[in-house]
Amino acid sequence: MGKIQKLIIFISLIISASTYAQDAPFKAVQDLFSAISQVNHSKMKAVVTADFQLLEDGEDWDMNDLINVIKPSNYVRKNYFNVVKTQSSGDFAWVSYWNKATFTKGELTKDVVWLESAVLIKDANKWKIQMLHSTKIKPEKLPKNIVLTEYKN
Rank of each mutant, 00 (worst) to 15 (best):
S37K: 15
V39P: 04
H41E: 12
S42M: 02
M44Y: 10
M44W: 10
T49M: 10
T49H: 07
A50R: 14
A50Q: 13
F52K: 03
F52L: 05
Q53K: 12
L54F: 00
E56P: 00
D57T: 00
D57N: 04
G58F: 08
N64V: 00
N64D: 13
D65Y: 03
L66Y: 08
I70A: 04
K71W: 00
K71I: 09
S73V: 05
N74P: 06
N74A: 14
Y75T: 10
Y75D: 05
V76S: 02
K78Y: 04
K78Q: 07
Y80F: 15
Y80I: 14
Y80L: 15
F81V: 08
N82I: 09
N82M: 05
V83S: 02
V83N: 02
V84A: 03
V84F: 01
V84D: 02
T86R: 10
Q87I: 15
S89R: 02
S89V: 03
S89P: 00
S89E: 13
G90T: 12
F92G: 01
A93P: 13
A93I: 14
W94V: 10
V95D: 08
S96H: 01
W98P: 09
N99P: 01
K100F: 14
K100V: 15
A101T: 14
A101S: 06
F103T: 14
F103G: 09
T104V: 06
T104N: 06
K105T: 11
G106F: 11
G106N: 11
T109W: 05
V112I: 13
V112H: 04
W114M: 07
W114K: 04
W114Y: 12
L115W: 01
E116L: 01
A118P: 11
A118M: 08
V119I: 15
V119R: 09
L120V: 13
L120G: 07
D123L: 12
D123W: 07
N125M: 07
W127F: 13
Q130D: 15
M131Q: 14
H133I: 14
K136Q: 06
K136T: 04
P143E: 09
P143T: 13
K144L: 09
N145V: 12
N145D: 10
N145M: 14
I146H: 02
I146R: 07
T149I: 15
T149A: 08
